[in-house]
């Protein structure tokens, strides 16, 4: 797989990250090296293999739907960078 500037720009958009020009050049060549190495996986025969997301057979964890205490509003807002009237404050989202 070839990684070029367009790939990096696309990934920046997906990741909600904007690189500096310098970072972009570096990132392009690093990603190329890493992805080329990942390409060795293509030689592995995976026909009989299941995509495994859990190490051990995971079972569903169920519990009763009970009301339990949770964080109060002030505590929940404690780490918010901007707060207004007891809410998270964000830039205007609707014109």
């Amino acid at each position: 797989m070839k990684i070029n500037n367009e790939t990096v720009a696309y990934l920046e958009k997906l990741a909600r990250i904007e690189l500096t020009d310098e970072e972009r050049v570096e990132c392009c060549s690093d990603l190329q090296d890493i992805v080329s190495h990942m390409d060795i996986l293509s030689e592995l025969d995976t026909q009989d293999a299941e995509p495994l997301s859990q190490s051990f057979s995971a079972k569903n964890v169920m519990r009763e739907d009970e009301v339990k205490p949770s964080l109060d509003r002030d505590t929940a807002l404690k780490n918010a960078p901007r707060v207004k009237d007891g809410f998270f404050s964000v830039p205007k989202t609707v014109e």
């Binding site: 995976t46 293999a49 995509p51």
Partner: peptide, 25 residues
Amino acid sequence: MLGNFVLSSGYYDEYYKKALQAKDI
């Protein structure tokens, strides 16, 4: 960004799914 790459449409099967199969192996 690498994570976004291996999960992005067109590359998901080739990288992410393949890696989960390799995990099984």
